[in-house]
Design a protein around this nucleic acid. Sequence first.
DNA 1: GTGGTCTAGACCACT
DNA 2: GTGGTCTAGACCACT
Lengths: 135, 135, 135, 135
Amino acid sequence: MLIRIETGSGTPISRQIADQIRAQCAGGVLAPGERLPSVRELARQLAVNPNTIQHIYERLTLEGVLERRHGDGTFVATGNQQDQKAEQMELLNRDVVRLVERAAMLGVDESELHGLIEKAASGRRESVEAKEGQS
Amino acid sequence: MLIRIETGSGTPISRQIADQIRAQCAGGVLAPGERLPSVRELARQLAVNPNTIQHIYERLTLEGVLERRHGDGTFVATGNQQDQKAEQMELLNRDVVRLVERAAMLGVDESELHGLIEKAASGRRESVEAKEGQS
Amino acid sequence: MLIRIETGSGTPISRQIADQIRAQCAGGVLAPGERLPSVRELARQLAVNPNTIQHIYERLTLEGVLERRHGDGTFVATGNQQDQKAEQMELLNRDVVRLVERAAMLGVDESELHGLIEKAASGRRESVEAKEGQS
Amino acid sequence: MLIRIETGSGTPISRQIADQIRAQCAGGVLAPGERLPSVRELARQLAVNPNTIQHIYERLTLEGVLERRHGDGTFVATGNQQDQKAEQMELLNRDVVRLVERAAMLGVDESELHGLIEKAASGRRESVEAKEGQS
DNA sequence: GTGGTCTAGACCACT
DNA sequence: GTGGTCTAGACCACT
């Protein structure tokens, strides 16, 4: 599983991780029924405390995004992907609206904003390709 | 001064307000030397506790964004607009990068994202025009 | 707030506490909008770790039973009491069915079970009266 | 042997099964010396992992509820039925007390609770008669 | 080996 | 003073 943490961004790491798992489940990057890394394993990978991951998995389970099987593991919940995707799209759009407003306040117009998006998207593509080249 | 508060968005209102004042000062929507509403007046406008505005003004003064003149009022600080704008642009860009990543995880590609931006921008234009028509 | 913990019953204390708060909110013993003890205060009262209470309050907030206001306190959520009561009644009834089955396996018939209920209910009444007499 | 498993009730299935065997041995539904189904047979009947049954039989043997005869089978232990019944009755009563408290918190009084018990008991009788009719 | 509960304690953000 | 996040680590239950 690919999770990126940005430290010192103000957003708590647990929220960053949860948001990314939620998005990947809703978007299908993580398929329904797929097994997630164990609490300890993901904690090791991301170099965070196992309790933090435990907390995130627990929360996402309550939300219906994940399913936990005691003594077995944690899995992407099956069913209602449609609803989850719709909800995530709504949240994404809300953030787009906020971004546009902040940009306007800074005197950044729409075309400049499209430019920033483009640059970020191409930067992301390169970074993903680099990762894939590694493995 | 135009500030929009989004309740229930997770982001504390004091941070929402401070971020918007910072952006408007950096972007020139609020010009250097311009007088801001009094603590009480802004609190009334936004329907928040005056203490909250008091703390925001204090903090932004420490950051060098605002200037308080005892017995007179609070003003946009003069000078170093350039630095502030650069800093705000960096923060904006960081959020753009995050947005692009979240979109990608949701299976939303770059062109769809441009579409969302466009819709939000035109929505914003209409809402601003409506407000201007009122006053 | 009146919470009773039974140690050594197999049921984790966090579940015992959460169940009782849920029932009291659904039943109206705790009224909508009412302030709950702070995390630290309830932890002290019940002699459990504050983290345990934090966890319980967080979970009940996600469930929509409570509402937390940062820097202010924790409150009984307003609205949908009806649904909550119905849900709690269903859970209670499920436990009644289980109890009846276990009793049957032990060779305890319905009338004996009614006797046990009666004794427990009168025991509870006395204990509550004693508590009220104290204060 | 009649065992009912309720999935998704929070209580682990191994505990549900063990509790029911214990209750039936204590209550005499399973008589002292009576042969239990083999590990594999019971696992097949209940559609659970044979390992789970294996552990349950082991544990109940340690508790003195069952007796395993190598190369022969598993049997209800002889003797000390009295003690077992007393212990089970105590556990049942403890659950009755808890039920009464939860009901009280929900605003359900004693007479309503008797009604729920009655309904559950008559529902159980019907279901048992139906099963007996089948075989 | 997997998840579940609980304690202990630090540091931060908000009103 | 209130809630929010995070680390560290113990012990238990389930497969």
